[in-house]
Design a protein around this nucleic acid. Structure first.
Lengths: 259, 259
DNA sequence: AAGTCGGTTCCAAAATTCGGAACCATGTCC
DNA sequence: GGACATGGTTCCGAATTTTGGAACCGACTT
């Protein structure tokens, strides 16, 4: 195990639920002995990746991560283009929009476009969710090869919400449907009463892929309204695919999709 | 040199001016041989700290930095309290507000409150500037001990804009003035035609220090308006110092201020 | 006075990294 | 077609780091 691997292992312990950790927290989360934890935390702190509260002595992501995180938006040609379109759709429909990327078998929220409807935003940017349980997550998976998908799903199929695909076979059925229709739908999965529709967009130029979704309350929307969302999404997808040179049939390889 | 040090050295090559780098760029910037650069870039890419554009093959900060960056001081009471007050002042005055922290002899912008006046936001969050050349940067320095300040200023005093202090003596004169008045002022320094006033706030509880500033166009503001900004800032400073238990006279040590 | 938390320091063994050199796949210029 | 540049990868022995157990430590609590 390299020093970098260890450092990353520590960094990955931090999350929205646990934005700061004590020495003991890190020790138990990584399972590393005291001396190693001590050395690594110090190194991470000294280089700015972590910082330490002088009062509570707890560790949290540091200034350097903040600066680098701001730089990540650099690849936003695809994202900002999608965001612009999504903003218009959300303004027209009043629903909440999401842009996310795939990372392994999970997705990470990159942008949110709050709608005018009073649906509380539940997934802030940076939020990590199993891609199997969201509409745009599955839309992104649907564009990978079957072999690649199998490689991404954990060896033991994860326990997902009731309405999500419960095994690899059910997943494949839903992905095939997405491949046929071009749009992915979810209802009552990660969050009760919330539904969404989404699609995946892949830049023909850079090959990078993002998921775009519109989310709404299932109770507060009619069948007609949801059909309207589908029309909006289909139109947006067509326009964005044209703008970004997205060739739908082209399968994304593992390396392209993750990084 | 540890593996982590090398990794950080690469990460620090990325900046707002150069948000993505080629293999050769990294090699020349770090001065490391090809094989080492290759291994390190791969490691950084594999762990998510960097990502590589599949088309141009250039490297840029990765998804992990985005996620961690979102976590940085997400629940920081001092900052959110200051931001709330700053928002009100900016709404009343129409100017742009900044919150920054000190890192060595530089400051990094953490939060921005855009004003209603048409002054384009020039310093996005994550922006790094010599603290000697900004109002809130100097306000933060003014709260350190003279010894600590001397330790932070580089051995060869940096070349700064015309209106910034040009040497250690001039700097000390300006810092003394800030210590007397409690407010720091800048005009036509980092950016021509832009002025700002700021102060430093230090939590009595945690000891962490931030700089708060209001920025405006020098041409588009009158002397009276700038005096008004000063009154607003003085009032905000008094309120925030009361809320956070900031004892003005207490000097911040080096360790507390940086991390 | 004892115990806990959050560390630091020491050490020899084990693992990793280092950098030069050779190699290679693409793309491009002449 | 051939030469050259770019952007890498792989190999290897030597050199450097990392590792983890154990002892120790200062501040604070019980």
């Amino acid at each position: 195990m390299s020093a970098l691997t260890n450092a990353i292992e520590i960094l990955r312990c931090f999350s929205g639920a646990q934005p700061d950790l004590s020495f003991a927290d890190v020790m138990t989360l990584t399972g590393k002995p005291k001396s190693s934890t001590s050395r690594l935390l110090r190194a991470l702190r000294d280089c700015g990746l972590l910082e330490q509260d002088p009062h509570t002595r707890r560790y949290r992501p540091g200034l350097l991560t903040f600066e680098l995180g701001r730089l990540h938006r650099a690849h936003d040609d695809l994202i900002s283009m999608a965001e612009r379109e999504l903003r218009e759709v959300c303004a027209r429909t009043g629903h909440t929009g999401y842009i996310a990327v795939l990372d392994g078998y999970e997705q990470v929220v990159l942008r949110i476009v709050p709608g005018s409807n009073p649906l509380r935003v539940v997934n802030p940017p940076g939020q990590r969710t199993p891609a199997l349980a969201t509409s745009n997550g599955r839309a992104m998976l649907a564009r990978l090869s079957d072999q690649d998908i199998r490689a991404r799903v954990p060896a033991t199929y994860p326990k997902l919400p009731r309405n999500s695909p419960q095994n690899l076979k059910q997943l494949m059925v839903r992905l095939d449907e997405i491949r046929r229709t071009g749009v992915s739908e979810a209802a009552d999965e990660s969050i009760e009463g919330v539904g969404s529709q989404g699609f995946a967009l892949k830049s023909g130029e850079t090959g990078e892929m993002i998921g775009i979704a519109v989310s709404y309350s299932v109770q507060a929307t009619t069948v007609a309204e949801r059909a309207n969302v589908r029309r909006e999404l289909t139109a947006m997808a067509a326009k964005l695919r044209r703008l970004t040179g997205d060739q739908l049939d082209q399968v994304v390889t593992r390396a392209q999709a993750t990084r």
